[in-house]
């Protein structure tokens, strides 16, 4: 089994897992802090539809996923800026509509079962060199956008109202941030699939949040948690010969649960509640 793990064919899948872990941590941190988890789930589902249409057209599914998720991210970014209730309904509709499109196109295609399964739960062991290049290009674009606009992203994440009042074009940054989620979904669809993409996006960032009082620390910790969970899940899946995406999903979810138990923020909160109860009793 160790020989299999060290085989040269494992290099591309391992690099894909590492790339996905890094992108998910960075995009996920802003997603968690801005409360965009539901929106990101809708976008990852729209990438499923794009990949399915690309299969029918004989194009690269990742490029189809990229086009569709960017299109839907524009719509969701637009509606999520207005009335919250309306946005919630429209995001829910996009969720269902994009999945319906995906199922429709896959039912037309003859390769239905194998292709659909690979989009839904990922197929990291089947990553080709072209796939890997696409993932690396998408990841590089994502990291460049974040590096260039880091300060602006931090401002709108902390206080979007003041950012707008003091001259930042917050709509533009919001659209860009949602577009980053679309880019992530392209990376994730091959590695963990659309269902588990949301876990990879949210869990490491949410776990890192429990131990961080500044954004830089949260980003680094999130990358570390995602890398450890991702690579460990990958190795274990090879040893036990089970689905890689499932073990990556389980590892990242476990990391989040453990972070909740060990969280200094929550411990502090509990101590405060105990202290208040004691004071009330004494009074």
């Amino acid at each position: 089994m160790l020989e299999l793990l060290l085989h040269s064919s494992m290099l591309s899948p391992l690099v894909a897992v590492i790339v996905a872990s890094i992108v998910s941590s960075i995009v996920g941190s802003f997603t968690v802090l801005r409360g965009l988890s539901t929106l990101s789930a809708a976008i990852t589902h729209s990438s499923f539809a794009g990949a399915s249409i690309a299969v029918i057209c004989g194009a690269n599914p990742l490029l189809g996923a990229l086009a569709m998720s960017l299109g839907f991210s524009g719509i969701t970014a637009y509606v999520s800026q207005g009335n919250e209730r309306k946005a919630d309904v429209i995001i829910g509709m996009i969720f269902g509509f994009s999945t319906a499109l995906a199922v429709l196109f896959l039912s037309i295609a003859r390769t239905y079962t194998a292709t659909a399964w690979s989009f839904i739960v990922g197929d990291v062991l089947g990553v080709s060199l072209i796939d890997l290049c696409t993932l690396i290009i998408v990841a590089t674009v994502t990291l460049c956008i974040v590096a260039l606009l880091y300060d602006e992203f931090k401002f709108i994440t902390f206080d979007i109202e003041a950012a707008e009042a003091m001259g930042l074009r917050t709509s533009l940054y919001h659209y860009l941030m949602v577009a980053l989620i679309a880019l992530f979904s392209v990376v994730a669809i091959k590695v963990v699939g659309i269902i588990l993409a949301i876990v990879l996006l949210i869990a490491p960032a949410a776990a890192a949040y429990e131990f961080s009082h500044n954004l830089e620390k949260m980003l680094l910790l999130s990358i570390l948690i995602a890398l450890v969970s991702g690579v460990t899940g990958f190795i274990l899946s090879i040893f036990f010969n089970v689905a890689t995406s499932a073990l990556i999903g389980i590892m990242t979810s476990t990391a989040y649960l453990l972070s909740l138990l060990a969280s200094p923020k929550r411990r502090k909160c509990k101590e405060f509640i105990k202290f208040r109860r004691r004071v009330v009793k004494e009074l």
Partner: peptide, 18 residues
């Protein structure tokens, strides 16, 4: 509860002008 330091918050005033 968002993870920012005091200096991050004050420097946001400068980001807006750039």
């Amino acid at each position: 509860t968002k993870p920012v330091l005091v200096k991050d918050v004050v420097l946001m005033g400068r980001i807006a002008k750039k």
